[in-house]
Amino acid sequence: MTNILEVEDLHVTFSTYGGTVKAVRGVTFSLKQGETLAIVGESGCGKSVTSNAIMRLIPNPPGKIDKGSIRFKGKDLMHETEKKMRSIRGVDISMIFQDPMTALNPTLTIGSQLMEGLREHHKVSPDKAKRKAIEMMELVGISNPAERLKQYPHQFSGGMRQRIVIAMALICEPELLIADEPTTALDVTIQAQILELFEKIQKVTGVSIILITHDLGVVANIADRIAVMYAGKIIEMGEKRDIFYRPQHPYTKGLLKSVPRLDLDGEKLTPIDGTPPDLFSPPKGCSFYARCPFAMKVCNKVYPVQTNITDSHHVACWLQDERAKQLQATLPIK
């Protein structure tokens, strides 16, 4: 299968009153056709910035894509004109935002918001647009779509609104869907329904999905691969099985330990102590150094080299170094 998206060495900074925040510091990943990649990390780790950068929706100023390359189906998106980008947004790449309560314009009907993307890009007749809108509403599981098109966002529940947002994102049949925390603002039962919907639409439309979340529980169901981000870098990436059953990075392990699980009875939840580093002046070495229970001298001085555990499983941690492995015997009691 071919790669639909390739992101390489992406750097994004924001200049604020307090100085320059290095929000994304060299992120590299790729996405195959029809695949679901989950980007996981705590808030502020740069995962949303990464997704906005792909859409070239970083507000400038204060934000700026410093360097790196983003290739969508081989096309370089970094140097496209704004006009060209507009014809890509919504058509080839679509995006869903965290809070369905605010992602819909309260003063416009659902129908007009659903159809406007279609009418903007494909110049279809109002009639055809309406038929397509009804079809999309059915796809995302909204009953009585013809009637509901005339309604306003406040007349829908949170879960319904998120379904509408998904319909809106899919109406031009994009090949890539970026979902930024699509379930975070929803109730747990609704979350499950929305995740099922993602699986369904992927089956129906074959769309590739980048799922951005801080919740490993969400990922467990629908992701094919997982990238774990910490302080603006991807620290571990691999197949879902690799990450869940053979995590290598202490941070990934910490994340897994802090997720409640039903299958592991009696295991204690352990939080990760401390807070992420200040991205105004990110550390030279491993950014997890200060919180890492296995920190070595080297971790504070040099950023760890990438180690490929398997072809698809990569980790950036000094514990993978041969010399560190010799130390394992003297592992401090933790």
């Binding site: 102590d273 401390g274 807070t275 001298k297 080297v298 504070n300 040099v302 560190a324 130390l327």
Partner: peptide
Amino acid sequence: IPDDWFEWEQSDKAQAEKVA
């Protein structure tokens, strides 16, 4: 990288807790 950098270091919890 010198070999002696590969030694356990008790990570400074106070530093980790320090607000940025």
